[in-house]
Amino acid sequence: MSARLGRAALWTAGVLVAAWLVAPTLVVIPLGFTDKVSLTFPPTGWSTRWYANFFGDPAWTAALANSLLVGVLVAVVATAIGTAAAFGLTRWTNGRGSAAASVLLLAPMIVPGIILAIGIYAVFLKLGLAGTLVGFVAAHTVLAMPFVVVSVTASLRTFDVRLETAAASLGAGRWATFRQVTLPLIMPGVVSGALFAFVTSFDEVVVSLFIQSPTLVTLPVQMYSSVTRETDPTLAAAATMILVLTTVLVGGGLTLAARRNRAR
């Protein structure tokens, strides 16, 4: 009897916590479709005017375009560099060296964002990179790379290296082996790494707040400054779109990761 009671209490607590993790964020979806100017929840009438507002306002559309551009570039750069690094880490036989390198590669994940932001801001100001596309891509690449390294390393760990030996015996050189054997087999890890890299860049706020310029603002930065100025439901429309996009991408990444594990 008491065991059943305990179980019920446990499930109640779990479901409440789960609801608290998921539900609050979802309020932005109906709010984006409100017909009022205020952010009262629940909305009393519906319209798509805030989406029209979003796409009619060059500040928002430019921010969206910038975020997409930076995100794609970061995904490409971080995936290329991060995949190479993951390869190096798993193949480097010098245990101490590769342990040290992997600590450094994952370090951006534990250093408080504000410290990194101040440092990057100072360096970028000196180099004239603040507010530039190159600057954004470089800064976000550093933050996104650990995710690529982790994701690709995981798929390299389950990759049977002996297949590369077999390929060599069949006449394939290093590059041919990589292209035809290794890469196709670790592709799920690479793709999910790329998706996580994109999402990391697409969501990044703190560093972007520092290195933004009037000519280059990303979507989270635009949201941040709108929130601090006025709060109209355009924000909710923007938030909904970010939510949908990142959910789709992360969902895709997780599915790929799951498929990779099942393939074993």
Binding site: T165, A167, S169, G171, G173, T177
Partner: peptide, 10 residues
Amino acid sequence: AHKRDIGVVF
């Protein structure tokens, strides 16, 4: 190895 032209079965 890839230029030795030796078949290998593992």
